[in-house]
């Protein structure tokens, strides 16, 4: 349980390997331009940030959050309102992302404060309900959120003299990857910090943690707020990438479940696991499925008339099987977290 704090390095070896692999993917794009990988690659990065946020809550603190997409939505809309030219603020990309994260943390705090003392499965349902409420509220308040149109256009990042646009997808990908690397670094330090150890203690045994003078409600609330902040940052990055918040129903239960699949399939509680999980899940969902669909259509099989020949229609089945099989045979995920305690 007590992980001795390792010698100071920026990243662990496995994290470095996965980040390095991600950094090398534009080469793949160069080699096979027909695959058009740069857009899904950025999705891998943003999904990884979202899932790292969820990992703090689910993996480290042991609270099931089924509405993480709601915080991504709040982040995206906060970013949009703060940066879009139709609103008076226009604080620019970086302040937009930071303030969106802060807003996410505030929202997580406000939801968590009254609900975190609930039993685990009840809390899961509350977060699910919150996810639905946020979607509906965004849809039903068009005066602020433009309803189903979404808010656009949104600014692309700028960094000193460097400009980012859809013409420079590789540069943009590396910027997002750098943001991911910073977040991985922060998460890694959090994991070994006093707070991180308190989270593990609460996850393993709340009563015992309380006896060690840890206030479970307080540390849970911190986990909830930090997870929400990361999710909101992910939402802001997604929105900037699309130059639009998209419609509120983009941030639906399916998005929350995709993030949960990433954490669970990759390795619950492990940062490397989350990174691997995002590559596997988003790779399957956003790269392999479209490629399979295209090639089937080219072969003349994938007619729109038959539901069975469109790979996209197997998405739910695939998510579902992934969750069931992982829970049954490998509840610790692909990347085994050393701190996950056998029950």
């Amino acid at each position: 349980m007590s992980a001795a704090a390792p010698r100071f390095t920026l990243f662990s070896r496995s994290q470095l390997i996965v980040l390095g692999l991600l950094a090398a993917t534009p080469l793949l794009d160069l080699a096979m331009p027909s695959l058009q990988l740069s857009a899904p690659m950025r999705t891998i990065v943003t999904s990884a940030i979202l899932a790292l946020g969820l990992n703090i809550v689910v993996g480290w603190t042991g609270l099931l959050n089924l509405g993480i997409a709601a915080f991504a939505a709040l982040g995206a809309y906060a970013f949009a309102i703060l940066t879009c030219e139709i609103y008076p603020f226009q604080v620019g990309f970086w302040w937009g992302v930071l303030l969106a994260g802060a807003f996410g943390a505030l929202a997580g705090w406000l939801l968590g404060a009254p609900t975190l003392r609930l039993r685990g499965d009840y809390l899961a349902i509350v977060t699910l309900g919150f996810g639905e409420i946020v979607q509906d509220a965004l849809k039903n308040l068009p005066a602020v959120t433009k309803g189903t149109q979404g808010i656009n256009p949104l600014p692309a990042p700028t960094l000193g003299m460097m400009e980012f646009s859809s013409e420079t997808p590789v540069r943009w990908f590396y910027l997002y990857l750098a943001i991911l690397a910073v977040i991985v670094f922060l998460c890694r330090n959090l994991e070994f910090s006093r707070l991180g150890r308190q989270w593990f203690a609460v996850r393993e045994d709340e009563l015992a943690a309380r006896c060690m003078a840890i206030d479970p409600d307080k540390v849970k609330l911190k986990a909830f707020a930090m997870g929400a902040a990361l999710a909101a940052v992910a939402g802001a990055l997604i929105a900037s990438q699309l130059s639009s918040t998209g419609e509120p129903s983009n941030y639906d239960f399916q998005m929350s479940i995709l993030a949960l699949c990433i954490v669970i399939v990759g390795g619950i509680g492990s940062i490397t696991g989350v990174l691997v999980g995002s590559i596997v899940m988003v790779g399957l969902n956003n790269v392999l499925l479209p490629i399979a669909t295209q090639s089937l259509q080219r072969a003349g099989i994938g007619s729109t008339g038959n539901v069975l020949t469109s790979p996209d229609n197997y998405k739910f089945l695939f998510f579902g099987l992934a969750l069931v099989l992982m829970m049954r045979y490998r509840p610790d995920g692909i990347v085994h977290s050393a701190k996950a305690v056998k029950k």
Partner: peptide, 15 residues
Amino acid sequence: TQLVAAIGVSFILVN
């Protein structure tokens, strides 16, 4: 673990 498995079953049935 059980709840996550149940969510998985739910997705399979939707499909």
